[in-house]
């Protein structure tokens, strides 16, 4: 009926304007306000707050646990996503829906549930504590909570990408003589690694800011299991808004740098495979080695 080509969104100008306003209102305005507020203190004071023993310990715990949780999810999330896409099994839809649950659950509920589960008399805690492995009320508890909270990120970013990999590509690799491991390493992994890194970065970013679930399982002991968001709350409790925003800004900067690293890594993995040897050569070499 209508022959002229039509864009889905009205005009580029309008769409871009909307995008800018939307992002400014949602992200730039609050963040800008935060940074402006911190500017009242000056760089030296902000650094004093951020480099205090307490803050440094909290940064270590927060970023360490977040990285660990994101890595755990990158590995196991990949397996979950692969299984959900590639293998038919009874109850698949149910399992698929399960993945989103950590998103839907209020984080405090997640924290309380995990603490109950891993406490000394909990369903899991009663078996692992006699082995000398304490989870609840230690930094490990933080890792568990963050892993739970960030599970959906890796799985959900990987699923569509894995769906897009056609089985024929694997068959072709196999017919050229590639082993399963080589196929995974050279065919599958390069295709999914950008999405895997995105999932990792999302999970990490989410974990760094997580507060609600962590405080119920962390134990919150100064210098041991205090996360940075707890220190921020602690400053707000003292009506020290400037101190709180200082910590927040430093945390934001650190996260930004780390996410930038992930992006660089992503760019590097995307380009790395351009100059590698052809698959049949690698397959031939691998075959010869066997």
């Amino acid at each position: 009926m209508v022959s002229k080509s039509q864009r889905v969104l009205p005009g580029f100008g309008l769409a871009l304007g909307y995008t800018l306003v939307y992002l400014s209102l949602l992200i730039l305005l609050p963040l800008g306000g935060m940074i402006l507020r911190t500017a009242e203190l000056g760089f030296g004071q902000v650094m004093d707050i951020a480099l205090s023993e307490r803050s440094l310990a909290a940064f270590r715990v927060t970023f360490g646990a977040s990285l660990l949780a994101a890595m755990i999810n990158a590995f196991f999330g990949l397996i979950v996503a692969w299984v959900l896409v590639r293998y038919p099994f009874p109850g698949k839809r149910f399992v698929d829906a399960l993945v989103d649950l950590p998103f839907a659950l209020p984080t405090a509920v997640a924290g309380i549930t995990l603490a109950t589960l891993y406490a000394g008399n909990g369903w899991l805690g009663r078996y692992i504590e006699p082995l000398g492995f304490k989870v609840a009320y230690t930094p490990w508890g933080i890792v568990v909570a963050l892993t739970f909270i960030t599970l959906p990120f890796v799985v959900r970013t990987l699923q569509p990408v894995i769906e897009d990999i056609e089985i024929e590509v694997e068959e072709a690799a196999a017919s050229l003589g590639a082993s399963r491991w080589l196929t995974f390493r050279r065919i599958i992994f390069p295709a999914i690694s950008p999405a895997l890194l995105t999932g990792f970065a999302l999970a990490f970013a989410r974990a760094v800011g997580e507060y609600g679930s962590v405080i119920f399982i962390a134990g919150n002991l100064p210098l041991i299991s205090e996360i940075t968001p707890l220190l921020i709350i602690s400053k707000l409790e003292q009506y020290d808004v400037l101190g709180a925003t200082s910590l927040a800004v430093v945390m934001l900067a650190l996260s930004f740098v780390l996410l930038l690293c992930v992006n660089v890594l992503q760019w590097w993995t995307a380009n790395r495979h351009k100059n590698t040897e052809p698959l049949e050569v690698a397959a031939g070499r691998a075959g010869g080695a066997q």
Binding site: A115, T116, A119, Y137, G219, N220, L221, S225
Partner: peptide
């Protein structure tokens, strides 16, 4: 104190 609870009710539950 092996831990500091998040709040009064959390301490009670613990």
């Amino acid at each position: 104190a092996p831990l500091f609870a998040a709040g009064g009710r959390d301490a009670t539950t613990t």
